[in-house]
């Protein structure tokens, strides 16, 4: 309950790394075993007869289109690589935006809030 802030920060880094590893494994390895049946919308569109109104995306020629890396013939490798690239790009983009948007711990109010959170006391109403 009274982890030193440094210790707590170390545990957070460890937790985030485990989460990232899980995401990379799911996208890089697990996705090969995903169902390739049409999804709910595609299936409904087929059933109801409007699937043929779908048009190719302008991004259809992307080297990563349909979660495959063009030029990599092995399906498992191609899909896995595409998944890993997607995870990294998403992490960098979303992580970058949230780091820019977040409150900095420069102001006194924020410092107090962080210390309180680290000490395990109930968070202030803002959270």
């Amino acid at each position: 309950m009274t982890d030193a802030p440094v210790n707590r920060r170390g545990r957070t880094t460890g937790f985030l790394l485990v989460g990232l590893l899980v995401a990379l494994l799911v996208a890089g390895v697990g996705s090969y075993y995903a169902s390739s049946s049409p999804d709910g919308l595609e299936w409904s569109a087929e059933e109801e007869g409007f699937l043929d109104t779908a048009e190719d995306s302008a991004a259809a020629d992307s080297p990563l289109a349909d979660y495959a890396v063009s030029g990599v013939d092995d399906g498992r490798l191609s899909g896995g690589l595409a998944g890993v690239i997607g995870v990294v790009v998403t992490l960098v983009l979303a992580g970058g935006i949230t780091l820019l948007v977040r409150r900095r711990s420069g102001s006194p109010a924020d410092d107090t809030a962080d210390e309180r959170a680290d000490a395990g006391t109930p968070p202030s109403p803002r959270s």
């Binding site: 985030l16 995401a23 996705s31 049946s37 997607g86 949230t98 780091l99 809030a113």
Partner: peptide, 30 residues
Amino acid sequence: DERTAPLAGLTAAFVFAVQMMNFPVGAGTS
């Protein structure tokens, strides 16, 4: 804040990954 911003980035990456895992829901649909 400083602690939750990195988690937000990871959550987006995690959602991207898990969205690749289509699960079967019967009737040839996923």
